[in-house]
């Protein structure tokens, strides 16, 4: 066996190992990651694309011999970053680009990608009315159930900022629900 052949095999073994790890993470966390992205952007197809991007980024990261101690917060952080990048880049022109460009087959109709029960529809809609910083901190802390420290790590904020923004975000959310008549005694 040549030296290069040996290295090639080692590289292949490493790549297979990363591949298996990322698929294991996908099986464990993809639903949570998809739901987080969906609630951030409220676009089912785009949420699927960004979920896939999240795991591809995780694969590239592990492929570069970098270790991940806490896959859950690591994946939420990647998902948050790809989502914020998407929100920043989203432009009105996108609508025209989509209209004129090739679109991949979405598979089943858009309606069947996600089902949202009526009991939570108003809350789902109200979250969309919040600014992204409020939305992301409420999703991570109160819906995904991350601790203050984990949320701070995902968002790249201080723990103090997580606490204060979550407090103000929930106040704004309650106000919005009350305005819409969805928060009753």
């Amino acid at each position: 066996m040549t030296l290069d052949g040996g290295k090639g095999k080692i590289r292949l073994a490493r790549s297979d190992q990363c591949h298996a790890t990322v698929i294991q993470w996908y099986d464990e966390y993809s639903i949570a990651i998809f739901k987080y992205i969906l609630k951030m952007i409220k676009d089912e197809q785009q949420a699927e694309d960004l979920t896939q991007d999240t795991f591809i980024k995780a694969y590239t990261y592990t492929l570069n011999n970098r270790d991940v101690d806490y896959p859950k917060t690591f994946l939420y952080r990647l998902a948050h970053n790809v989502t914020i990048d998407y929100i920043r880049k989203r432009k009105p022109l996108r609508m025209f680009e989509n209209f004129f460009s090739y679109q991949k087959d979405p598979g089943p109709s858009v309606e069947s990608i996600v089902e949202i029960r009526e009991s939570s529809r108003s809350l789902y809609d109200a979250l969309d009315a919040l600014k992204p910083s409020y939305r992301s901190v409420i999703l991570l802390r109160d819906i995904e159930g991350l601790s203050v420290r984990e949320t701070a790590h995902v968002l790249g904020w201080s723990e103090a900022k997580v606490k204060s923004t979550a407090f103000r975000g929930k106040k704004a959310l309650k106000k919005h629900l009350a305005k819409e008549g969805d928060l009753h005694e």
Binding site: S30, L38, K39, G107, S112, S119, L123, I143, E144
Partner: peptide, 18 residues
């Protein structure tokens, strides 16, 4: 807030496709 995730269901076939 805690119940919201339970009320959102991602189509299993779509999850498998991704």
């Amino acid at each position: 807030l805690k119940d919201l995730n339970k009320d959102i269901i991602w189509n299993e076939q779509r999850q498998q496709q991704i």
